[in-house]
Amino acid sequence: MKHAIRYSLLLLTAVTVIASESCQSPNTSKNAEIKDSTVFLSPPLITSMYTADPSAHLFEGRIYLYPSHDTATGTPENDNGDHFNMMDFHVFSMDSVGGKVTDHGVALHIRDIPWAGRQLWAPDASFANGTYYLYFPVKDKQDIFRIGVATAPKPEGPFVAEKTPITGSYSIDPCVFKDDDGSCYLYFGGIWGGQLQRWNNNVYDSTARLRQGTEPAILPRMAKLDKDMKHFSETVREIKILDSAGNLFKEKDNDKRFFEATWMHKYKGKYYFSYSTGDTHNIAYAIGDNPYGPFTYKGIVLNPVKGWTNHHSIIDVNGKWYLFYHDTQLSGKTHLRNVKVAPLVYHEDGTIQTISAYHGK
């Protein structure tokens, strides 16, 4: 059954700022609790349930949101994010930013994924071949995160999952980017609970550890998708994120290095790779000349929000750019989040104006 959620969005001025979080633990959070709801930049888009990690897309003239569905399962909290024990996905849509949000119901449930074990984390979606594709990470029967794909004839689903995960896929936070020539690329990865630290040269090692301060930071991954959108057409490769001097970041550079939550978009011919820095709570971005990178770090899209890490998406809606994100305004609990949206502004040189999740901050 569809549920209409009435929502009146506070449209914002040009100087705006925001944040989100993803599937990890609050144990090392540095964020202070914000108790006055009037200081938040944007109100929650959805209040009928807890949602997070919003992937936004413009399909068929409507804005569609593909978020995680947070639930209170009672799973103990830990640094691996076991308490983010999601079971299904709902798809939401609206005619415009500020318009009525419609809940299209359950689009995919974990019980309908033949190879799934537990923890249905942040998804993304794409359209090709007259079909809508939903990409999702979930732990398999061996408790290893893989990325699966499901299909539907409509953007809201329901989606039917393939019987096996994408061959060669691993870790979390898939993002599908379609370039101007129609080529599609899948970006993914997340350290800590996302298990990316266990993969070296695409080989799994359950004993592999996180990098230490002066060691090179773990890099996100990507691969071009085959025309059928269900397989990789090439070997998974690392994405280089460089500082202004052309050097890779070290793990100690944790206010800039990659942690999770990949997103790719294109603006004036340049490729913008954005991501969460995780334990320092920024949404950062880097710019490159092609979808493979390398990408040069440019700054912060979104400062920390109430909650733990961030997870976002960036889209163009009729010539205006928006950042979708999440925080914990409704619950105050790290694993029970709510999605939001705010305008995103570019400077003349193509850099992005940093957004704050609070008024006057």
Rank of each mutant, 00 (worst) to 15 (best):
residue 264 M to D: 05
residue 237 R to M: 07
residue 264 M to C: 03
residue 272 Y to H: 10
residue 257 R to C: 15
residue 226 D to T: 10
residue 235 T to N: 10
residue 304 P to M: 05
residue 222 M to V: 13
residue 232 F to H: 10
residue 294 P to E: 02
residue 287 I to V: 15
residue 257 R to K: 13
residue 245 A to W: 00
residue 225 L to A: 09
residue 275 Y to P: 04
residue 298 K to L: 06
residue 242 L to C: 05
residue 248 L to K: 12
residue 264 M to P: 06
residue 241 I to V: 15
residue 276 S to A: 13
residue 282 N to D: 04
residue 256 K to T: 08
residue 240 K to R: 13
residue 228 D to L: 07
residue 273 F to T: 10
residue 280 T to D: 14
residue 234 E to A: 13
residue 298 K to F: 11
residue 232 F to S: 07
residue 295 F to S: 00
residue 297 Y to H: 14
residue 279 D to M: 13
residue 299 G to Y: 12
residue 269 G to D: 11
residue 261 A to C: 12
residue 288 G to A: 00
residue 275 Y to L: 02
residue 295 F to Q: 02
residue 299 G to C: 11
residue 307 G to L: 00
residue 289 D to H: 07
residue 274 S to T: 14
residue 308 W to M: 02
residue 242 L to M: 04
residue 269 G to E: 12
residue 268 K to M: 14
residue 302 L to T: 13
residue 300 I to A: 03
residue 289 D to F: 05
residue 239 I to F: 02
residue 226 D to R: 11
residue 296 T to W: 01
residue 273 F to V: 12
residue 275 Y to A: 07
residue 297 Y to C: 10
residue 236 V to L: 06
residue 295 F to L: 06
residue 267 Y to C: 07
residue 266 K to S: 12
residue 231 H to E: 00
residue 307 G to S: 09
residue 237 R to F: 10
residue 261 A to L: 07
residue 303 N to F: 03
residue 234 E to G: 08
residue 273 F to P: 11
residue 237 R to N: 03
residue 258 F to K: 04
residue 265 H to Q: 07
residue 273 F to I: 11
residue 264 M to L: 08
residue 294 P to S: 04
residue 244 S to V: 09
residue 298 K to R: 15
residue 245 A to C: 01
residue 266 K to M: 01
residue 301 V to P: 08
residue 251 E to V: 00
residue 263 W to K: 11
residue 286 A to T: 06
residue 226 D to H: 14
residue 260 E to C: 03
residue 260 E to P: 04
residue 290 N to V: 05
residue 281 H to P: 12
residue 288 G to I: 04
residue 252 K to C: 03
residue 230 K to Y: 03
residue 277 T to V: 05
residue 246 G to P: 04
residue 242 L to H: 05
residue 262 T to I: 00
residue 301 V to G: 07
residue 302 L to I: 00
residue 303 N to Y: 13
residue 306 K to E: 13
residue 301 V to I: 15
residue 227 K to L: 05
residue 299 G to A: 11
residue 241 I to L: 12
residue 272 Y to W: 09
residue 225 L to V: 02
residue 242 L to G: 01
residue 296 T to S: 08
residue 294 P to K: 00
residue 275 Y to M: 02
residue 250 K to T: 06
residue 222 M to S: 10
residue 249 F to D: 06
residue 293 G to F: 06
residue 304 P to R: 06
residue 255 D to T: 10
residue 307 G to K: 09
